[in-house]
């Protein structure tokens, strides 16, 4: 690693101030960032650790019925504390990485980084959640802008994610065998007014909504309705772990399995 100073603010306001420094970079759980720093792929002058900000931690039910999760909440906490209200999300959180990673990694870090193979972006997009930052709220549909790209401005921090709680939901994941990240994973969220389907791991453009499947499932919520649907293999990632065609195929399989899981 290149050397850097570490700031450990206790409040969001202090964190924002610290991030105003040239070449400052926020770090939440560090489970992606620290390996990146080890590979010397980033060179911050100041690393602003968000792990000491209590106001960014916790899972609570908002007045509007949404499940509000602080950006600094670890995957392990989400897995435990969201289980009653939003089991689909808790199930996703419980299968990110491994236990030690889940004890450090946070939802805010995952959403801010927007790795094309990360798990959380699928839940955020499939529920139409709102990404809350230190100075605004961003709708999920506007937030994700391609691989590692988001609507966040320089120095902006994800302080909270507000999830509308679906009637039912399920996250189905096929892992890449080395990294254990999703090769393809699909989050299906069934709401009273429709169905949303988000896919991670598969696309060259990062997490995306599969609107054709959403429309079909909105009509009849069973896996047969999406059987004939396909995504374009040309848009899918092709690498040593699977071709675009294979990933496109898995998008269908994972979607159908998620629907079947919801229908029991």
């Amino acid at each position: 690693m290149y050397n850097f100073d570490v700031e450990r603010p206790k409040t969001v306001a202090d964190a924002v101030n610290a991030l105003a420094t040239d070449e400052a970079q926020p770090m939440s759980g560090g489970q992606t960032l620290i390996p990146t720093l080890k590979a010397r792929l980033a060179m911050p002058s100041v690393l602003v650790s968000l792990s000491g900000i209590d106001e960014m931690k916790g899972v609570r039910k908002g007045d509007d019925g949404r499940l509000c999760i602080g950006g600094g909440t670890t995957h392990a906490t989400v897995a435990a504390e969201a289980a009653a209200d939003f089991p689909g999300l808790a199930g996703l959180a419980a299968r990110i990485g491994d236990p030690a990673v889940r004890n450090r990694g946070t939802i805010g870090g995952s959403v801010a980084n927007n790795d094309p193979s990360a798990c959380y972006p699928a839940a955020v997009l499939a529920t139409g959640a709102t990404v809350v930052t230190n100075n605004r709220e961003i709708a999920a549909d506007d937030y994700f802008q391609g691989m590692f790209a988001t609507a966040l401005e320089e120095g902006e921090i994800v302080t909270e994610v507000k999830f509308p709680i679906p009637q039912a939901s399920h996250y189905e994941k096929h892992i890449q065998p080395a990294s254990r990240f999703p090769l393809v994973a699909v989050f299906v969220a069934k709401f009273a007014d429709g169905v949303r389907v988000a896919v991670t791991g598969a696309s060259e453009n990062g997490v995306f909504r599969w609107t054709e499947a959403e429309a079909a499932l909105g009509g009849a919520f069973n896996s047969d309705t999406v059987k004939g649907l396909t995504v374009d293999a040309a848009d899918m990632i092709s690498d040593l772990h699977g071709s675009g065609a294979y990933r496109a195929h898995l998008v269908g399989v994972m979607t159908r399995r998620a629907v079947d899981a919801i229908n029991g």
Binding site: G30, Q31, I34, P35, R104
Partner: peptide
């Protein structure tokens, strides 16, 4: 941050000591 040879407990929780800064 894959192999886990460095797992220790911090405040009672398993963490990978290779993926946490000492200052934290």
């Amino acid at each position: 941050s894959q192999c886990g040879a460095c797992v220790v407990h911090v405040n009672g929780q398993a963490v990978k000591a290779c993926s946490m800064l000492a200052v934290e």
